[in-house]
């Protein structure tokens, strides 16, 4: 998103008060306590008041159910559409059946929002082929993205708060060892090759 637009996306970190994502995007990121009503007001109201921006909400797992319950109760999807905004939910699947069931339930709850399933090779594939894959089909995802696994050394590197993929892609980050540079390019190419043409527009325009 940072590469594709002049306006930087606004980032909301729900890991209150620690702010995991805020460590990486100090200027663009706001940490919000979703368990409090004033935090919910700060999040949802401010987005609707400024629909000209793109937003990324990093949702802590323990907030998932409550977040989408509020999202549903207050009719946010409809209001966002009326404000000309699209909503895309990236759901990270883990190895448990409960995770698939949560994805199915969430997909049913959503109306016009896009639902993108993300499978992370680093945590392994789902291992319940008998009914797991069947349930996976029931999710009815719009798209699926697979995140390839990074080596432990590469993961350490990208998790450092001083690293960001934008600088890496724009080659503003010099002096990386070749193996690391190659691995990160392969990682990004694998992800980006899964994006259909015009993904940014299709995801974030109502």
């Amino acid at each position: 998103m940072r590469l594709g637009t002049d306006d930087l996306p606004r980032i909301v970190d729900t890991d209150y008060p620690h702010g995991t994502i805020k460590r990486y995007f100090g200027h663009e990121c706001t940490t919000i306590d979703l368990s409090r009503t004033d935090g919910q007001v700060r999040l949802f109201d401010s987005i609707l008041e400024n629909p000209q921006f793109d937003y990324v909400i990093d949702l802590e797992a323990h907030h998932l159910e409550r977040f989408f319950s509020i999202f549903d109760d207050i009719g946010y999807e409809k209001a966002a559409a009326a404000a000309g905004m699209g909503v895309a939910v990236f759901f990270f699947l883990d190895r448990t059946l409960a995770s698939i069931q949560a994805a199915v339930a969430l997909r049913r709850q959503l109306g016009s929002s896009q639902f993108v399933l993300v499978r992370n090779d680093a945590i392994g594939a789902f291992r319940a082929p008998v009914y797991g894959e069947h349930d996976l089909m029931k999710i009815g995802m719009d798209r699926q993205i697979r995140l390839p696994a990074l080596s432990a050394d590469a993961l350490d590197f990208v998790e450092d708060p001083s690293f960001n993929f934008t600088d890496f892609i724009m080659q503003r980050r010099q002096g990386l060892p070749d193996w690391l540079s190659d691995e990160l390019w392969r990682f990004l190419e694998t992800i980006y090759q899964q994006q259909p043409t015009g993904t940014a527009e299709s995801l974030f325009t109502a």
Partner: peptide, 11 residues
Amino acid sequence: FSFVLRGYVRK
């Protein structure tokens, strides 16, 4: 009035 609070009351 806040959209969120109006949403709570609507529900």
